[in-house]
Design a binder for these strands. Structure first.
Length: 268
DNA sequence: CACTAATCCTGGACGC
DNA sequence: TGCGTCCAGGATTAGT
């Protein structure tokens, strides 16, 4: 479900509620996720103060003095500020502070809850590519990374070892904004196109964060409010609808086993 | 090495 | 109302 803007929205929603607060209890309700939730969290986090909450790619990093709690939301994970006493189906993990309870619910179980002494050294984090909203991400970076690669530009920008946070929705939307055909081999992408693309990715992600993310089926922020970027989508999930630029029909194809939406007329 | 396919899992939409 | 099929926001791993 969540790409960078949704994770960022979650982070921004949670942080003011939990910063500098002590964990009073941890409940592991259903440890089965992509990896088993480490049982020691139930005791090792109690009485520890949350120093900061960060985002790295699509990972949330809850920082404590004794280490980092790493959470990935997978396709269907949600963290809510819970006022409910009764648990719901697919609740997995609960982080309880004095006055507030965070609950992780993940029906498809592609998410994970991990522990690391330092998140930067964790095997799932240390090889991640650049943050798209950082100054390290520019056309030169993409150009260097694209060297000799024949893979298509869409899967290239979705490769988290190159660039983090861009999933299927924002890859489609960014390529549309940059007017680049998603099928184009990266070794044929010009420097000028890379410049347009980096700019488009930054613009799309920033705007999506501002709108509180994209709600397709059920994404909601920590207070249960929906994301409004879905109203601004230009191609994603809009097969056979008219392109806002040229009125041609938006196409749906499959690339690397993922749906791609684009306008053949505008993106070439 | 580079690229493709399979895989993990549940639930919602849709056709019959 | 129910059943079968397909599809979904991710990312690793196995295989060619």
């Amino acid at each position: 479900m969540p790409e960078l803007p949704e994770v960022e929205t979650t982070k921004n929603g949670l942080l003011p509620h939990i910063k500098n607060k002590k964990v009073t209890a941890v409940n592991i309700l259903f440890p089965t996720l992509r990896f088993q939730i480490p049982p020691h969290l139930k005791t090792s986090l109690v009485n520890k103060k949350l120093i900061d909450l960060k985002r790295r790619g699509k990972y949330l990093i809850f920082q404590f003095k004794n280490g980092d709690l790493i959470v990935h939301l997978g396709m269907s994970g949600k963290i809510k500020i819970s006022k409910l006493i009764k648990y719901e189906k697919h609740d997995h993990f609960e982080l309880i502070f004095n006055d507030i309870t965070l609950r992780l619910n993940d029906p498809r179980r592609f998410g994970c809850v991990l522990w690391a002494d330092n998140y930067n050294n964790h095997r799932l984090i240390k090889n991640l590519g650049v943050e798209p909203l950082s100054t390290l991400f520019d056309e030169n970076y993409l150009f260097i990374k694209s060297d000799n690669k024949k893979t298509n530009i869409k899967s290239f920008i979705m490769n988290s070892n190159i660039l983090v946070g861009v999933g299927n929705i924002y890859a489609c939307e960014s390529l549309f904004l940059a007017k680049i055909n998603p099928l184009l081999s990266v070794n044929k992408v010009s420097k000028k196109q890379f410049k347009l693309l980096t700019k488009a990715i930054k613009t799309i992600l920033k705007n999506a964060i501002k709108k509180g993310g994209t709600t397709l089926k059920d994404f909601a922020n920590v207070d249960g409010e929906l994301g409004y970027f879905s109203q601004e989508l230009q191609v994603y999930n809009l097969e056979n609808k008219k392109c806002n630029n040229c009125n041609n029909k938006i196409l749906r194809i499959v690339q690397n086993q993922r749906a791609t939406f684009y306008c053949k007329n505008c993106q070439n």
